Amino acid sequence: MPDTDTLPAREPTIRVAAMPSDANYTGDIFGGWLMGQVDIAGSIPAVQYARGRVVTVAVNSFVFKQPIFVGDIVSFYTAIIKTGHTSVTVAVEVFVQRNPAKPECVKVTEATLTYVAVGEDRKPRALPQTEG
Score class of each variant (00 low, 15 high):
Met19Arg: 14
Ser75Cys: 07
Ala17Gln: 11
Pro20Gly: 03
Thr112Asp: 00
Arg53Trp: 04
Val108Leu: 06
Phe62Arg: 01
Ala46Tyr: 08
Gly42Gln: 00
Ser61Leu: 02
Ile68Asp: 03
Val116Ser: 12
Ala46Gly: 07
Val54Gln: 08
Ser21Glu: 04
Val116Asp: 10
Thr26Gly: 14
Ser75Ile: 04
Gly52Gln: 07
Val59Pro: 12
Gln129Tyr: 03
Thr13Leu: 02
Val116Cys: 12
Ser87Gln: 04
Asp5Tyr: 11
Val63Asn: 05
Ala41Trp: 04
Glu120Tyr: 03
Ala17Glu: 07
Val57Leu: 08
Ser43Leu: 01
Ser61His: 13
Trp33Arg: 06
Ser43Trp: 07
Gly119His: 09
Val57Tyr: 06
Val59Met: 14
Thr114Ala: 06
Asp3Gln: 15
Val16Ile: 15
His85Pro: 02
Ile73Gly: 10
Phe64Ile: 00
Thr86Asn: 08
Met35Asp: 05
Gly52Val: 07
Arg51Phe: 09
Ile73Met: 10
Val57Ile: 15
Ala50Val: 09
Thr114Ile: 08
Glu131Lys: 14
Pro67Met: 11
Trp33Leu: 02
Val63Met: 02
Arg51Cys: 11
Thr13Asn: 04
Thr13Ser: 02
His85Gln: 11
Gly52Pro: 02
Gln37Pro: 15
Val88Gly: 00
Ile14Met: 12
Val47Thr: 15
Lys65Met: 06
Gly27Cys: 09
Pro20Trp: 01
Ser43Asn: 07
Cys105Trp: 05
Cys105Gln: 10
Val47Ile: 11
Trp33Met: 04
Ile14Phe: 05
Tyr115Cys: 09
Asp3Pro: 12
Gln129Trp: 00
Ala23Val: 06
Lys123Trp: 00
Asp121Phe: 00
Gln97Asn: 11
Asn99His: 12
Pro45Ala: 12
Met1Lys: 13
Val54Ala: 02
Thr4Cys: 06
Thr86His: 08
Met35Leu: 15
Asp28Ile: 11
Val63Cys: 02
Met19His: 07
Tyr25Ile: 01
Cys105Gly: 04
Thr56Met: 14
Val118Arg: 13
